[in-house]
Amino acid sequence: MAKLDNVLYGHLWRPFASLMVIVLLLPLFVKSSYILTVLILIGIYSLISIGLSLLLGYAGQISLGHAAFFGIGAYVSGVLTAKYAGSPWIAMVIGIVFTWLVSYVIGMAILRLKGHFLALATMAINIIFFILILGLDEFTGGASGLVGIPSLSLFQLNLGNPLYFYFFVWFIVFVIILFSMNIIRSNIGRLLRSIHDSEIATETLGVNVAKYKVIIFSLSAVYASLAGSLYAHFISFIAPPSFYITFSILLLVMVMVGGVHSIWGAVLGTAIIMFLNEWIRYIGQTYFHISGQVEIVVYGLIIILVMMFMPKGLVDILERLWKKIKSVQIKGAEKRKMTTEKGA
C-alpha cells in the first residue's frame, strides 16, 4: 500500500481503483457489441483527451489540431501494415516517433503564439494534414480511405476480438493515467501550472518556458498518435473525415465538459460526449431525418453552456458535492458524539 501511495499520491488511488472496477465489470453487463465498440472508442479517445488536459488545463496552451496527430498515428500504422505488410507493433512505434518529431518541429514554430492565434495556427496544421492525406492517395487511399489494416495480436492472443481489445485499450489508458498524474505531481507539473498562470513570471525565475511548452505539446501529440494507431488496428479502415477539424473540436468539448484541470475530467468528459454524440445521431436520423455533421451545432451549444455555467467542468461540481456530503457526515458524527457525551 505504501508503494501504491507513492505512485498515486495517497487519496488518488480511490478514483483510480473505482474506474478500474467499473472497467472490469462493465463487460459482464454489456451484451451489445455496439455498446462495447463505443466503450473501446471512449478508451481510445480518452488517451487524446488526457494529453489535451495536460496541454490546455495545466500548461494553458490550446490546440484545435490534435486530430492531425491522431491521424498521423493512424495513417503511419495503416500504410506500413496494409501497404507494406509491416509489423503492427513496429508500425505503432514508428508512428509515435514520427509524430513526436513532427509535433516538436511544429511546437517550436507555433508555441510562440498565444490565445486565439495559437488556436488558429493549430487549426491550420489540421487543415494541411487533411489536404495531404487526400492528395497522397497512392499511399493513403485518398477520399476512399485505407482498407485492409490488420488487427493486433499479443502473445498469440488475437486482439481482433472486441472483448480482448477492450481490456487491452483500457490497460493502456490506466498506464497513461498513472504516468500523467505523476507528471502533474512532479516538478514539471508545478512548472506547467506556473506557465499556465503567468509565462512572464515563470520566465523571470529563470525557467525556459518555451522548452516546457514544446515538451508537453509533443507529449500530448504522442498520446494522440498512440490512440490513432490503436484506432486504425481496431477499425481496420481509416478515411480523411475521421481526422478533420470537427474531430479536434469534439476533443476540445470532451475536455471542457469533464474539466480541463483534471485527468479524471478528461476521461469523464470523453465518456459523456461519446454517448451524447451517439444519442444525437440516433435521434436526428430516426425522428428528424437529419444527416451530416449536425452534431457540430450541438458541440457549439455545449461549449457556450459549459463556459457560462460550469467553467471548471463536471469534475469540479462532483468534487464540491462530495465535500458537502463529507461535511454533513462529519457534522452528524460530531453531533452524535456530543449527544453521547451528554447522555453519559
Rank of each mutant, 00 (worst) to 15 (best):
A2Y: 08
A2D: 13
V7H: 14
G10E: 14
H11L: 15
H11E: 15
L12D: 15
L12E: 15
L12Y: 15
R14Y: 15
R14S: 14
V21H: 14
V21I: 15
V23G: 12
L24P: 08
K31A: 09
L36Y: 07
V38P: 09
V38S: 11
I42T: 13
I44T: 09
S46K: 06
L47Q: 02
L54M: 13
L54Q: 08
L55A: 08
L55I: 10
S63K: 00
G65L: 00
A67M: 00
L80T: 06
A82V: 06
W89K: 09
I94T: 10
I94A: 12
F98Q: 00
T99A: 00
Y104Q: 04
I106W: 05
I110D: 03
L113N: 04
L113S: 04
K114T: 09
G115R: 03
F117C: 09
F117P: 06
L120R: 01
I125A: 00
G135F: 06
F139G: 02
T140W: 01
S151Q: 10
L152E: 02
L157D: 03
G160N: 06
G160I: 07
P162V: 09
Y164W: 12
Y164I: 05
F165T: 04
F168W: 04
V169A: 06
V173I: 09
V175C: 12
I176V: 14
I177Y: 14
I177G: 05
S180V: 05
N182R: 15
R185G: 04
S186V: 10
R193P: 08
I195A: 05
D197F: 01
E199Q: 07
A210M: 14
S218A: 14
L219C: 07
A221C: 07
A227P: 02
A227C: 04
A227L: 01
Y231R: 03
I235K: 07
I238W: 03
S242N: 11
T246Q: 08
I249D: 03
L251Y: 08
V253F: 01
I272K: 10
I280D: 11
R281G: 11
Q293C: 06
E295L: 04
L301A: 15
I303D: 05
I303T: 11
M308W: 12
F309M: 11
P311N: 10
I317K: 11
E319P: 05
L321V: 13
V328H: 14
R336Y: 14
R336C: 10
